[in-house]
Design a binder for these strands. Sequence first.
DNA 1: GAGAGACACG
DNA 2: CGTGTCTCTC
Lengths: 261, 261
Amino acid sequence: MAAFTVVSYNINSIRVRLDSLLAWMHKTNPDVVCLQETKVQDNDFPEQQILSAGYHVIYKGEKSRNGVAIISKHLPNDIQIGHNNWGRDNEARLISAKICNCTIVNTYIPQGQEPNSDYFQYKLDWIAHMQNYFAERFNPSDLVLWVGDFNVAPEPLDIYDPARLLGRVGYHPDEHAALQNVKAWGFLDIFRQHITEGNNYTFWDYRIKNAVDRGLGWRIDHIWGTEPIARHSVNAGIAKDLRRDLRPSDHAPIWATFNLP
Amino acid sequence: MAAFTVVSYNINSIRVRLDSLLAWMHKTNPDVVCLQETKVQDNDFPEQQILSAGYHVIYKGEKSRNGVAIISKHLPNDIQIGHNNWGRDNEARLISAKICNCTIVNTYIPQGQEPNSDYFQYKLDWIAHMQNYFAERFNPSDLVLWVGDFNVAPEPLDIYDPARLLGRVGYHPDEHAALQNVKAWGFLDIFRQHITEGNNYTFWDYRIKNAVDRGLGWRIDHIWGTEPIARHSVNAGIAKDLRRDLRPSDHAPIWATFNLP
DNA sequence: GAGAGACACG
DNA sequence: CGTGTCTCTC
């Protein structure tokens, strides 16, 4: 089979940035684009424009916050929205589909606000619940990709000042432990299989002047895969150029290419 | 002396449209631009950008509403802000200066909301008070221009459906009478000395789709002058093209050119 | 800093 | 419809 490229992108309002996204997709020709923070309720989702561009699309949104979507060249099957069987999945943070024999789970993990806040505990619970989610549905020998805005930089290499920022939301030992537990179920970090240098970030705070040029970013968006899919990955990268647009999202797309078995 | 061009423009937020205004001024090279609805308090007025473009500027604003300014190639003298000696001039609606021996009074007359409202009576009082303003300060034989957003279309020719709209705010007999009283002090409508055709408007409601193309406008912005200045006027017009910008004001600039005596 | 929403205004 | 205000979120 031909190369199969999967992208994860926190778009920070699909209505503001859909034109820019479609132009970028036209250039880069990805197979699957997983979006977070679409920030639009389903009635207002710009479905027609995506269909006209020749893609399938599935989505689950809320008014003004959260919101996830999967745009795909190939027909998505076995669509799942939300966790089911879990009391705290009233937010639009998880959407999943089987595309070309590979199950793609796209999540927007809660940001967490501040350690010691209720929101932070919610984030930890949310991450912990993902282990149940995968264990109940899949086997580590399945072709499963877990992608999205995880709102966690897992390693020192994934953040611009690990010493100073340790303990902050997004780079906190409790988050690292929670995420490691899910990873231990059977995931590999596809990006790090190919790119081992630092200063490869997917998020730069709007409030820090010239953060991109100054290298003041975080790698908090991820593409993780089970061993059988990771084995077939051939490349990965971050489309940093999109973060330099006139009106950019605060995130850049992360992508990985596979030769699907 | 060379030609002297005076412009009146309700800019509907100078912060949003200053770049567009300066580009237009660069093309058209006016001597004086009188603005209304700058919608910015004096601390936030973009003075430096105007000075850098080679103009003088005087202004009086409020937070979020009203606000008047005069941009001028030539040094403004005898600057007056507000009516003085009148109880109801706490709003930023009047600014005046002597520029090249001609006194220019730039006003943003209250919109009036609805006939029978208190705001409508305020508008009528405001207009009536302008007669005192001129009588106390000038003589009809002086070189005086009264320009601005008058929020009144004086004649049937100044509105797209005079029969239907008669009695609405902006085209009401009481407004016509009030304005006529001030005019009788000694003003001529400079624009109408040169342009006698209809469909020459300065305002098109944002809420009416394609109002400009469909000719659904009002001529409510004016350049009036005393006889000695009117006699030296050589041309006038409306810069309708600016109303077709990507993010236009709901008004277009009105201009008049003089060979000053 | 930049999205969202809601409200006031013309 | 398109300005402004303010509050909320990340």
